[in-house]
Design a protein around this nucleic acid. Sequence first.
DNA 1: TCTGGGGTCCTAGGACCC
DNA 2: TCTGGGGTCCTAGGACCC
Length: 425
Amino acid sequence: MSFALIDCDSFYASCERIFRPDLSHKPVVVLSNNDGCVIARSKEAKALGVGMGVPWFKVKDHYLKHQGAVFSSNFALYGDISGRMMHILSLFTEKIEIYSIDEAFIGVPHCIMMNPQQATALGQDIRQCIKTWLGIPVRIGIAPTKTLTKIASYIAKHNPAYHGVCAIPNNQYLINRYLKQVPVHEVWGIGRRLRQQLSTQNIDTAYDLACIDAQMIRKKYSVVLERMVRELRGEACLALNEEHDPKKQIIVSRSFAKKVTNLQELNPIVNDFVVRGFEKLRNEKQLCTKISVFIRTSAFDKSNLGYQGFDTFTYAQPTQDTRQGLRAARQILQKIFIPAYAYAKAGIILNDFNGVTNFQQPDLFEEAAPQYDNSNQLMSALDLINKEHRNVYFASQNQVGYTAMRRSMVSPRYTTNINELPVAK
DNA sequence: TCTGGGGTCCTAGGACCC
DNA sequence: TCTGGGGTCCTAGGACCC
């Protein structure tokens, strides 16, 4: 079996455009939480020089001068559109791996790959469907390995002649021709550090990387890079993962709109993270054995030395009871909180999920955590009540939810809230 | 003034065992 | 004066991804 990668163009920006056809050829950017960084840009916004991940305040004036549209992130919308796209893909094949909110791999049978025209036609079919039914433009890369589908997608992105679909056949000579067109840092799995290291060895293109001796690369670098090299040569090392892997970790964290300096203010915020984290945990049908809390000052503040507090609590028994989470978080926070710092961000991490193997031998001298009666029933009832609207809170939770976020330019929840449906006039 | 959030995998090294 | 060899498990931190 070969693979196809379906990858949306500037996904968040494209989602915003669905209900705003007036923006179809205008610059569109989408901002991260707190309207902090640019996390999606349309083609036109890129052309204005707006970089990925740049702080909004740095490009704001320049961007708005050119009549660019800007949105706070609207994950209710993006998540819903993503689900619809995955549904369309499922009409073409059962062999599908949802890789991220805007990307999916699907399996392509060998018989189709034997004929490059047929493979390309299939890609165009899928692309048209998604464009027509959903209004989202996608790119499709088809190839014998997952890593090569990423290469194909890159080629399609940079050559308009491909009309968004590039199929690389299983032929070493042809593969190499494509690899020579791609800079090594565009290879899936090559980040900043590896790019630097490889550059000192004069490895600059994907082709250069594919030519390295696999044994040597394993010794000198790692199995990860070895796998990449093999994949680039057309040897499939990564399979299609059709199952939804259970999570191994849950993180809830936020940067604050305003710096926080005292524990009284910090406690309810962190408690809110705990409540949210345990909801996710129960949604995953898991129990956790460890909870960590971290708080930190701004990474960009040069005026003081900065501080990062982090500690972990291990439960004697795995739990999914929010009250256990709140107890532990309060203890940790008291331990790691140092007054006199201005905190910019905090978060919680849940770890070591359920499973019999994760059973911890209780500590003989540890004070036993209280066991709550009917814990499961209470948590289920809570989740049920809060499913539609958040009606029931813990007293120690922040009233406003997390910490007040700047989100001044958010679009309506067009597809997920009955009161915000678009109106056709 | 203002700089995101949520994940996975791998490796080296320490603690511990016999 | 001289202090082994082989192994497992866990953790923190690095690197990468979208």
